[in-house]
Amino acid sequence: MQVANSIIAITGAGQGLGRSMAVYLAERGARLALLDVNQQGLDESVTVCQAHNAEVRSYVVNVADEAAVDQCFTAIAADFGGLDVLVNNAGIMRDGMLLKVKDGKVTERMSLAQWQSVIDVNLTGVFLCTRAAGAIMAESGNGGVIVNISSVSRAGNMGQTNYSASKAGVATMTVTWARELARYGVRVAAIAPGFIGTDMVAQMRPEILEGLVKQVPLRRIGEPDEIASTVSFIVENDYLTGRVIEIDGGARM
């Protein structure tokens, strides 16, 4: 499938990697449906994409809300006349240790709210959006592509019980869906980014950022376009499905 003229929906498109992906794909002629909970962020992303003469529409939606997701994808299919690609990028972090102990006593625990909020967005949101988009693709008879954003943290990372669990779940759902949806011409793959130079990373204290770089054999933080170009590669390689591509400079967590 070619990126040019494809109808591509991107969740979490109001900032960060989602916006970078949108701009990268806009430059290559994609027709874009941008999803986020933040209207202001979406408006800014739409403006940037339109500067590249892209056809783009925005949709305010909470990916963890089943009814809202179904309504959103019905609207996308009606507005664009179908859907070719979904990029499940929306995600949040609520980091914390499972337990903190001082003088033999537990002083702090990861709260259920910390756990559930991340699972709701990062895991349930991916499930709901894939189910909605996959149904449109399967019924169209033209197939499609679903790209999930996992993380190298899926292997387990200290202070990220919730986030690591959610991203491991995304990776396993990717393999499961690739097997289930292939019969309908739908390919499913995932990207596991390492440390990428988003606004959040750029705001880290210099000493913390330096410590992160030391964990990367290539000795640098990844560029957002290096993730966006991988999305493009997955879309355009018709023999790729059921795989998680690590874009992490060689880091292993």
Rank of each mutant, 00 (worst) to 15 (best):
A30I: 00
A77F: 07
F73V: 00
Q40V: 11
G194M: 09
Y59M: 06
M110S: 13
Y163F: 03
E139W: 04
R252Q: 14
G81D: 03
G82H: 03
D36C: 05
V23A: 14
G194C: 12
P217W: 09
A171N: 12
G144M: 01
V3E: 00
Y239A: 12
I196A: 13
V60I: 11
G41N: 05
R154W: 11
E55H: 12
R131L: 11
V235P: 01
C49T: 00
A54H: 08
D225N: 15
G14P: 04
V126Y: 15
S58T: 04
G134T: 00
V46Y: 04
V106H: 04
P217F: 02
L17N: 00
P193W: 11
R183Y: 04
A168Y: 02
A9K: 04
I245F: 12
P224Y: 02
A138M: 04
T74I: 10
R57V: 08
T47V: 06
S111C: 06
R154T: 02
A138N: 06
A190V: 01
E55T: 12
V126N: 12
V152W: 08
V56F: 05
S153N: 09
I136R: 01
G12C: 06
N157C: 01
S229I: 09
V63L: 00
I119W: 06
K214H: 11
I208S: 13
I196S: 14
I92E: 03
R183T: 10
V69R: 00
N142S: 15
V175L: 13
P224F: 05
A178N: 09
A132L: 05
D70P: 06
M204V: 08
G12V: 00
